[in-house]
Design a protein around this nucleic acid. Structure first.
Lengths: 162, 162
DNA sequence: GCTATAACATTAACAAGTTAAGTAAATGTG
DNA sequence: CACATTTACTTAACTTGTTAATGTTATAGC
């Protein structure tokens, strides 16, 4: 992300004009959305350059990865598993189809639906990227330890239910 | 986000063609990026509709909120505090200026820099939204408890260092 | 069988994320 | 002072996020 950091030339004047000086029980909670963003960015900044070298965005890669695991999925399943909204997914799939990485077949029993599958070129791309991906995940795991990662995952799943 | 969830009509065929069946110590770690996304989305889905009613995106609101706290900030400070990349921030500030919520003054000592400040309209907007925001944070805090939130924050900050 | 309703995918329109390049002002070095 | 380098912000181009609306196909109720 490379957000510029420099010594503050304009000092914080602490002139916060609070609306509710009495009810500040949520000082910590307030930081949660950005803390989630920062943590995720810290991780993704490791993957992004690697994926970019292979001409993939992280979302495109999620789709490729899922199609490698499940061989065929329809758009709704992809949307749920990749956590991508349908309109974004439509564009991503159009892109991947144009690059001959993915093909679509109309579902016979429900013609509203399309089944997606990796082409052989798509599979090749997956195989090329996979080792780099494993390497990065191992770095993360070595750095933090499985225990801490498991704990974080548990908490995150908990919050995802909210 | 409202990602459609329905009973899988196409069964998972478990036909995962693994590249490295031997090295799977990172099964859990793999889920981390999406878990962060899901947790964040669970939170943001509470704020987004409320902010939308006031015609703000969450990013626009972050800028407003920071300018309310610090009275004047330059673009670099805003970028860092709001965790928004400079190009996005440029557009957000242009939008807020066009809506008369924020004004910019060129910094005298360094004319590359601009100092931003809320207009009185901007302050009014902040005051209007603030109570709703507090209410949502309190819900979150009541639901999970301060201890769990503090623990999550600690872990997230840890990961943000990576 | 017909009609109303729901579901799947897409399109449209706008905001934001991401990377690279550009412009202008400040700084550093000879 | 002249010149290269750095810094702050912007622009451009492309991708994705987000919401609302649309077209098409399934399904449910009558």
């Amino acid at each position: 992300m490379t957000i510029p950091k420099r010594p503050p030339p304009t000092q914080d004047s602490h002139s916060a004009s609070r609306a509710n000086p009495s009810e500040l029980p949520h000082e910590a909670t307030k930081a949660l959305p950005i803390a989630l963003l920062r943590a995720r960015e810290a991780l993704m900044s490791r993957f992004r350059p690697m994926l970019a070298e292979h001409d993939f965005t992280s979302q495109q890669w999620r789709v490729i990865r899922l199609l490698n695991e499940h061989s065929t999925l329809d758009a709704a399943q992809l949307a749920e598993k990749a956590f991508i909204l349908p309109p974004s997914l439509t564009r991503i799939l159009a892109n991947l189809e144009a690059r001959d990485l993915v093909t679509r077949v109309q579902c016979a029993s429900d013609r509203r639906r399309y089944l997606f599958r990796l082409t052989s070129l798509g599979e090749t791309s997956f195989q090329k990227i996979y080792p780099d991906r494993v390497k990065i995940y191992k770095e993360i795991e070595t750095y933090f330890g499985k225990r801490k990662i498991a704990l974080l995952l548990e908490l995150l799943d908990d919050f995802a239910q909210f």
